[in-house]
Design a protein around this nucleic acid. Structure first.
Lengths: 232, 232
DNA sequence: CGTCTCCTTGAAAGCGTTCAATTACAGTGG
DNA sequence: CCACTGTAATTGAACGCTTTCAAGGAGACG
């Protein structure tokens, strides 16, 4: 432990003129921190390639992951200070932008910020969605489905994060995650080619286990809301 | 069950001219739905008085609460369709606004939307924060602290929502919530004057139980981030 | 005074955690 | 090339917490 802190390479020379519109390219090595919770929120980031995780550290030493971010995802959108830390799961290439709400109050600026905020909100809701599931099987199944949808590939799914990462994201222990995934493989819901490489064999079975017909990657196609029995 | 659906009173006569800038006043009776998940997201709302809950219904019949909203809180900020339903916990008075991102792309319009999105994001993060806690005692303690801070009053705290509401918000059963609150009262952390009226006797004790020194109502004052031991 | 809703409490079962040990694999240096 | 080392993943067994099942009690309302 206690190794490197931050490895950043700036590809764009000019430090202030260009970054507002196009964004400054930043490279971060696997395992390194991008920013820490409590730091002043100078930038928000867009993933160009690789995977990023955001996490909080609670006072009891426990770690809580709040999101995984793939290409085109954004993170670090904050008003003042970062609520959470961001770390590189793999080697990542990022594009960063200044994080001021009304810094330059041009039309496009505020609109862009709105779009970014919506993405951040979507990410937060995905996290809430996962937490909402009761059992370990529920959560892991929902997680696998979401990761499959987000990473694009339907059958062959990569899980570059560790079991510990997944556990802290789903609020489980790495043991339970490992056991649950092994269970899924035993039941032929998935094939476990290697710990990081999963193939989904029975998507419908997984969906049934997740307790939700919709993977929740998009925005519409929600189950019919129960119009009756509102008051509880 | 199966009683009234929606009771709305419009205080503003003109249906379209006024609502954009100042907002249209809407009254909703306790227990009634304000909108349903899946509905087209025509409006977002600001609470004038009373308390609102937002919730999702999963395919297994299970309900997941995603937030309680007090005066000046906003909810229903969506891009296209509502992700969740909104219901009145008490009789509520709301102010509603049109929910179009770039409907009228004036400067102030986009800025206002940005501020509202930030509030929604803060609300989502509060939900994530609560879910991140492991044990029932952790979650309930954190919940009580947050509610105390948000409702203003420090000692005398009202819990207008049912135990079932709290349970679905914290992802527990109402039994566990009831037991945990009774435990807190037994340990003299709180006084339970009535099921809905709680007085906090030992705030530090609750904080210790919640596993977080900060109640997370504001934005700064986070615990020192662990600079060492970054890579897991 | 009955009914309805909500809250509380007891007992047993289920499931995830904890403690503990083993295996697999990549990197490193002999 | 192979033992050595450290990290990650897996698996077993026992414990403990939460859920589930079940019943009783407290108010509100007609």
């Amino acid at each position: 432990m206690g190794w490197g802190y931050l490895l950043i390479t700036l590809y764009s020379r000019d430090s202030d003129s260009d970054q507002r519109s196009s964004g400054q390219l930043v490279s971060v090595a696997k395992g390194s921190a991008i920013y820490h919770q409590g730091d002043e929120a100078g930038f928000w980031y867009e993933v160009v390639s690789g995977i990023v995780r955001t996490c909080r550290f609670l006072s009891d030493g426990h770690r809580q992951l709040t999101g995984f971010f793939y290409s085109d995802d954004v993170f670090g959108v904050e008003a003042s200070a970062y609520h959470e830390s961001a770390e590189a799961v793999t080697n990542v290439l990022l594009r960063r932008f200044t994080n001021r709400a009304a810094d330059d109050d041009s039309d496009s600026e505020a609109d862009a910020r709105g779009r970014v905020l919506e993405k951040a909100l979507e990410s937060a809701r995905r996290c809430i969605f996962l937490f909402g599931h009761r059992t370990a099987a529920n959560r892991v199944a929902a997680f696998l489905i979401i990761q499959a949808e987000r990473s694009g590939a339907q059958s062959g799914l990569q899980l570059p994060m560790t079991r510990s990462d997944i556990a802290d994201y789903l609020n489980l222990t790495l043991h339970t995650v490992s056991r649950t995934i092994a269970d899924f493989a035993r039941k032929r819901l998935i094939a476990l080619d290697s710990p990081q490489h999963v193939r989904i064999l029975d998507l419908d079975g997984l969906r049934a286990l997740s307790g939700e017909p919709d993977g929740d990657s998009g925005s519409d196609a929600y189950p019919a809301s129960p119009r009756e029995g509102v008051g509880l």
